[in-house]
């Protein structure tokens, strides 16, 4: 297998030039899918026979909750990649994705609470999924706090990579422990292997909004990475060339 693309990814310059054309289309694709999924889900799907209309918040809650976890997964893996291969792009990725992941976790928490009010009668229930999203949010805040507290760039890069990698190892344990601690929760809405139990007209818009959310977050991460790369490499010639030609 040819691994040059993998090594090229390590170079911020190459990554910047490669990713430049992807962010905008991804953003449009994501926005359109999200809008379609949300309108379909919020306005046109039939109401749930048990939860009535309040179930519709899953079209927001489920995508952001999935993204909050996926972002951490990506963060943890790039931390590991940085520790093993010293790839320069990895800490930039971590720095870009951490606040987005934190915002996703926060929206998941808030929408979960809004969902909880009509469903369980309280804003907060020590439900396994809500609790693990709360822990996830705290993990993100820890990473962001550590990044901000360390002035030395090299040290900050290494530190977030270490904590991300340790988190990657520990996250399944945390999740398992929290689920074990409270098994009184609804099962995961989506599984890749089993046929979903929801009616097709309910889960198709959900799938669309999840995909839209992925694209949207990917475009935001790319933009953040591009601006961090420009900032870090502002002295190099290719950045000057880039700014001269395209007038960023």
């Amino acid at each position: 297998m040819n691994w040059t693309w993998f090594h090229k990814l390590g170079s911020p310059k190459w990554f910047f030039l490669w990713s430049k054309s992807y962010a905008l289309p991804l953003f449009f694709l994501g926005s359109v899918a999200l809008v379609v999924g949300l309108i379909w889900g919020l306005a046109f799907t039939p109401a749930d026979y048990l939860q009535g209309n309040s179930f519709r918040i899953i079209y927001i809650h489920v995508p952001v909750a999935i993204l909050a976890q996926s972002c951490y997964l990506g963060l943890g893996f790039s931390g590991l990649i940085f520790l093993i291969w010293q790839m320069k792009i990895a800490p930039i990725f971590i720095q870009s994705i951490a606040p987005i992941g934190a915002v996703m976790a926060l929206i998941a928490l808030v929408s979960g609470a809004v969902w909880g009010k009509p469903t369980w009668g309280t804003w907060w229930v020590w439900d396994a999924r809500l609790t693990s999203v709360l822990v996830l949010f705290l993990l993100y805040m820890g990473i962001i706090g550590l990044k901000n507290a360390l002035d030395d760039v090299a040290l900050a890069n290494k530190s977030v990579a270490v904590i991300g990698a340790v988190g990657l190892i520990n996250l399944p344990i945390i999740k398992y422990s929290v689920i074990w601690w409270n098994t009184l929760h609804q099962g995961a809405t989506f599984t890749l292997t089993e046929k979903p139990a929801m009616a097709a007209e309910m889960w198709i818009p959900l799938l669309i909004s999840v995909i839209g959310m992925y694209c949207l977050v990917a475009s935001l991460v790319l933009w953040r990475m591009q601006s961090i790369i420009l900032e870090r490499e502002h002295r190099s010639n290719w950045v000057k060339q880039e700014v001269m030609n395209n007038g960023f």
């Binding site: 805040m141 820890g142 706090g145 550590l146 030395d152 040290l155 520990n170 422990s177």
Partner: peptide, 30 residues
């Protein structure tokens, strides 16, 4: 791990707690 990461920060105590406590949860739970 957390202590080594925050060793160069002057007021690292609170940050260390924020960083490390989530990782302690499974141990406390079990």
């Amino acid at each position: 791990i957390g202590s080594a990461l925050t060793v160069s920060i002057k007021q690292g105590g609170v940050l260390l707690m924020l960083l490390i406590l989530p990782f302690y949860l499974p141990v406390i739970i079990f």
